[in-house]
Design a protein around this nucleic acid. Structure first.
Lengths: 302, 302
DNA sequence: TGACATTCATAGGTAAAGCTCATGAATTGA
DNA sequence: TCAATTCATGAGCTTTACCTATGAATGTCA
């Protein structure tokens, strides 16, 4: 056998109280059990720890030395359990994840704000990357999950769609535009539009979906950055063609989104995890927050 | 229940080897026992520590954190047992004791040298005090024992006589003097003598013992320090009247001691301990050394 | 692709440990 | 001197710990 924390607890108790009986009361066990624990420890360590008469208990010099080590181990044990419980309840910890640039700019700020409010002690490490890098970065780094738009399947990955962003026309809140419930792509052809460049993921998906229907998008402006498109829209240069999820409402309060139909094109916002790896409690809490917020958002019409 | 060191040992084993089976082998228990220990620990801490499939074991982030704390506790435990075993075997530690000035100067140097040779890692704290202070200092300080000449009994003290120093005449190794086996006090009266002053313990004992026989000591010289007496003797000024134990043979190689008889007066060299207090292993070892060396010495004729 | 080997989890039984209760011995204090 | 307190010990019971055996899943190699 070996030294146990029980024995050390009994030992520090007796050392501090100078009494087996009192220590036993503290520990919630009987005096005889405590007596035995001390005897065991003495055998383990090969040292007499207390000079005991039938009436009194006096620590030896060895006990003086052992006391500090014992206290340290016990407080380590307590610290460990406390820390782990904090982690378990997401009162502490760290969330590291990957987010595609689009999600990071439009969706995540609100989620982060809400999560922080509920879990102020949790460190957040968000790595925003280009869409193509989402999965590679999740695989290669210590990120626990990824949020972004991906198509298809990946080996060793779980993919869960959190919400779908409908491809929408985003424009200023004019009476005319606000009255519309949706626009068709054909209607859009008559209007000045701002779309992403052909190299971007979003644009590629649009071209492909429209092409399948024999249609074709001829935007007035083509840009690389989402924010540029939105800023131009806010200036009244045209309607931005983007997933509604990519409109940060607080940043562009004058803009509203109306879904594009015929065909309706949707892009998933997905949560990716490594298969067989449980998320840390902190990450779980974060994902839960994200799920609920995005589910609410899905309920609303874009 | 609570976290146990067993569980932590299993945990660090599995963490390092990434395998329950291998860890079990290391620990010398079965795979199932190890599996259970990990499960228990997870329950205790409220955290999942490993992502386990039927084939593999991967530490979680919580495990990464817990690992360091666990290792520290285990190495503390090992350090504690090692340190205590060292203490137990007197391979380490500290001996604090009180010695009367006489013992400290004549008897203890050799004992210290021998002890140090056998126990080089033990710190020695010898407090040399006047004879009257021997017991008070033992009571008041953390000294574990005292060595010196005491008469009578003391409450709460164990007294063990290690050797007895016969009151002797100490003189130069002349053919004449060396031939003598002993001297009587009456013979001494004819010779030049060097004795301690009347205030000293030794002298008081001499005067008392002689007085009981109607005799009287009239020394040629009276000094306070033993060393002075010996130095004077070495110069041939007379015979020093001292316990034979107080002649450090190596310091005064020219001097020899011959017992004084009619009456023979002896002074004990005693070991004093607090009753009911066990000595530390280091102190025990020291006392053993002292006992054997002084016993040998008693065997020799002074 | 299918047989095999490896690995982890679980269940049942047994050995060991841990605890309580009861009792005894020593010491303190009234 | 008697009562009260305190520690140690032994008997008996309960809980824990462990091992063996077995099952389920997964990776491996022909």
């Amino acid at each position: 056998m070996n030294v146990t924390l029980r024995q050390l607890r009994a030992f520090t108790g007796v050392y501090r109280t100078r009494s087996i009986t009192r220590a036993a009361r503290e520990l919630g066990i009987t005096q005889s059990a405590t007596s035995l624990l001390i005897q065991q420890l003495e055998v383990q360590l090969g040292v007499k720890l207390f000079d005991r008469s039938t009436r009194s208990v006096h620590p030896t010099l060895a006990a003086d030395e052992a006391f500090h080590a014992a206290e340290r181990m016990l407080s380590d044990a307590l610290g460990l359990t406390r820390r782990m419980h904090d982690l378990a309840q997401a009162r502490a910890g760290r969330v590291a994840f990957v987010a595609s640039a689009g999600a990071a700019s439009a969706l995540l700020p609100q989620i982060l704000a809400k999560f922080r409010a509920g879990h102020p002690e949790i460190d957040i490490d968000m790595r925003d990357v280009a869409a193509d890098d989402l999965v590679p970065r999740l695989i290669a780094t210590d990120a626990e999950f990824a949020i972004g738009s991906v198509e298809g399947e990946f080996a060793e990955m779980t993919i869960e769609t959190l919400t779908r962003g409908r491809l929408s026309a985003i424009g200023r809140r004019t009476a005319d535009f606000a009255a519309r419930r949706s626009l068709t792509w054909d209607e859009l052809a008559q209007l000045p539009t701002i779309a992403m460049r052909r190299e971007t993921r979003i644009r590629m998906q649009i071209d492909q979906a429209l092409g399948a229907q024999g249609k074709h998008l001829a935007p007035t402006y083509e840009v690389t950055l989402i924010n540029t498109a939105l800023a131009m829209t806010a200036q009244g240069l045209g309607l931005a063609i983007l997933p509604a999820t990519m409109l940060p409402a607080d940043q562009f309060p004058t803009l509203i989104a109306r879904p594009l139909v015929r065909p309706a094109i949707t892009r998933p916002v997905s949560l990716l995890q490594r298969q067989g790896q449980t998320l840390s409690p902190a990450a779980q809490a974060f994902v839960t927050t994200a799920r609920t917020m995005l589910a609410e958002r899905s309920g609303r019409a874009f």
